[in-house]
Each structure stands twice: as structure tokens, then as C-alpha cells.
Design a protein around this nucleic acid. Sequence first.
DNA 1: TTGTATATGTTATAACATAACATTATACCA
DNA 2: TGGTATAATGTTATGTTATAACATATACAA
Lengths: 169, 169
Amino acid sequence: MATRTHKHTDTHAFPKPGHNHDRCTADALKKAAAVCAQRKTRLTDIRREVLELVWKSHVPVGAYDILSQLNSGGGRTAPMAVYRALEFLLENGLVHRLASLNAFIGCAHIGKDHHAAQFLICRVCETAAELDSAPLTRALTQAVAERGFTIDSQIVEISGFCPHCSPPT
Amino acid sequence: MATRTHKHTDTHAFPKPGHNHDRCTADALKKAAAVCAQRKTRLTDIRREVLELVWKSHVPVGAYDILSQLNSGGGRTAPMAVYRALEFLLENGLVHRLASLNAFIGCAHIGKDHHAAQFLICRVCETAAELDSAPLTRALTQAVAERGFTIDSQIVEISGFCPHCSPPT
DNA sequence: TTGTATATGTTATAACATAACATTATACCA
DNA sequence: TGGTATAATGTTATGTTATAACATATACAA
Ligand SMILES: [Zn+2]
Ligand SMILES: [Zn+2]
Ligand SMILES: [Zn+2]
Ligand SMILES: [Zn+2]
């Protein structure tokens, strides 16, 4: 028998180039529906469409990119609609916003109530992944407390080179 | 004799409400001039003016705020001029940009080549201060390395309540 | 001084985000 | 079921942040 469960993607691995991303998307949408049901919030059409577009890849996507994809079939959706959908998704912990990119990415740990918002962002393939490191959070909490500061929210965004992309020589 | 030097502001203390801020500014400008001399870059009029405006307080300031202050006397400076000055100041390590605020703040550790860019930002008084914690940096480096990631640059911005401002009850 | 690199001026536009108010859909109770 | 409140979306306009492109001016060294 197996000594550990074998999910299609290890939560702690940086997304691999050729992985079955359809399963990431399906998984996220399923969990999103569950979260909304539990919280009695409504995952309406446009909200789901935006969530699906965010999950098109692991590369953070801008609000206006989402907008143009929505309108690529001749639609006339306005920016407000996208921003409102994103606001809903943020409030419900279904997506994150990356301040350093002005872009959004699907949350990889829906329901886990992390809200740590620690990210690794590859400069080459532009993939972003959550780094919700407990030791890092502890060090951060400790360092902040030493300054007499009380944390309300944190942003940790680390830019560099992912395991699948080499730094330029 | 004193067992420790007594700078007018402890580098590790969060800026106090009533401190002698003129000295912060004078200090920063002096060091900025020294850095530019050493690096053979030119601290021109507009660059110095922008740096002075950034140092008006410990509250991060937006590019267009700087612009309107520059133009408050009837000037006609364009946004480009401000952004170019800010770009120069960033490149020379004289100011930092806070991604979570789209705003700029004077570097409190000019010359120390930290480039860590770890900040504490008070939600009440809006003051921002550099954290630059070595243990935090170590934890971060470690956590990132465990994921097979190579750091190029980091953003750490912590929002909360400074030692001089109470959290809302 | 004269060429070259650096800096600034100028105009326009791109990119990101929200305000304000009208309309439509949904939930939920009488 | 119908009425009413709430939530969601539509629509128009505007605010805010940042950069592109090209012209002119200034500094500085050969
Ligand atoms: Zn995937
Ligand atoms: Zn990569
Ligand atoms: Zn000060
Ligand atoms: Zn404060």
C-alpha cells in the first residue's frame, strides 16, 4: 500500500510545464462552488467565467486581459463587471491579487483560510505559486513583534527563477 | 563616557510622532549627495527636489502628489519628469517604491546596499518604516530554496498598527 | 570648440481602477 | 402568488498611475 496520498499535483511543487492543467481548473471550480455554497454567496455566471479565465494558467492575469478575453466573442462587458467579479472572488478567498504585477491568480489553497499571500513569481515563465511557509510566517511575526508592530495583513512577493527555468548565465 | 553612540533617531525604532524630522531630511540629502558623488551620477535640481518632497515625511507619497507639490507655485512640470527622477532615485538606492500603495518613500539606510525592501506600514498614521530583518531574510531565503527557487528580488510589505497607534478596539 | 552622452521638455496615450446611478434578477416573506 | 427588499449587473463617465516617442537643451571630455 502507498504510504502517502498521491494528488495529481503536489501542493508544494512549483507548477510543472507539462502538467495536466485541466485538473487544476476543474478542482478549483469545484472547490469554489463548495465554498460559495457553504458561505451562502452566489457564484454567478460572470463570477465563474472570470474565475475560469484566471485559472487558464498559473500566470497571473490582469483585469483588462480578462476583460478582452470575455469580450473576444463580440461581447460588450465593461471593466466594472470584471473588477466586481474579482472583488467577489477576493473576498471569498478564491483568487489573490499580486501587488507587484497588478494581476490576479487563482488561489491554490481554497478553504484553508491561509490569507498569508506569500508568492513566488518566475521571471522567465511568469508562473506564480503560493509559498505559504509556516517558518517564514513565524519569522515574520517575530520580527514585526520586536518592533512593537501589530500585523493586519502581509504581502510577500518574491521574484526570481523557478525550478524549471534557469537564471540567465 | 557613553557606551553607545546616540544618533538622533534609532534606526530600528519606528518614527516617532514628534521627532525632529528636519534632521532626517538633512541626513538623507547629505548621504544622497555622497552616494551620487561616489557613483558619479548626477543629483540634478529636479532629482533633488523630488527627493526632498519624498522626505517631507515618513508617509509614502504618490508620484502625482509629488507632481502637484512641484507645480504648486505655478510650475508646469509634466508627469514624465517626476517618474524619471523617481527612476533615478530608485536606481541609486535613494528611495523605495511600495507596490501595495503605488507610492514612494525615502530610503532610511542609504549606502547599506540592503535592497531587501521589507516594510512596515501603519494603517492609522500611514507611516512606513523599513524592517530589514536578518532573521526574516534568512527564513525567507531558506523557504524559497526549499522550493528550488532562486531569488532575484523580494517585496515584503506588512500593513498593521505601529507602536504609536492603537488598533481599533 | 565640437562631438557625444546625459538630461529634460513636450505631447500623447497606455494601463489600471473606481464613482455614481439605472436597471434587472433573486430571495424571501406575507 | 405577489410584493418588496436585497443583491447583482448594466452603463457611462472619470480618476489614478505609468510609459512611449520624439524634440530640445545641457554637461563634459577630447
Ligand atoms: Zn495547473
Ligand atoms: Zn519559470
Ligand atoms: Zn523623520
Ligand atoms: Zn501609526
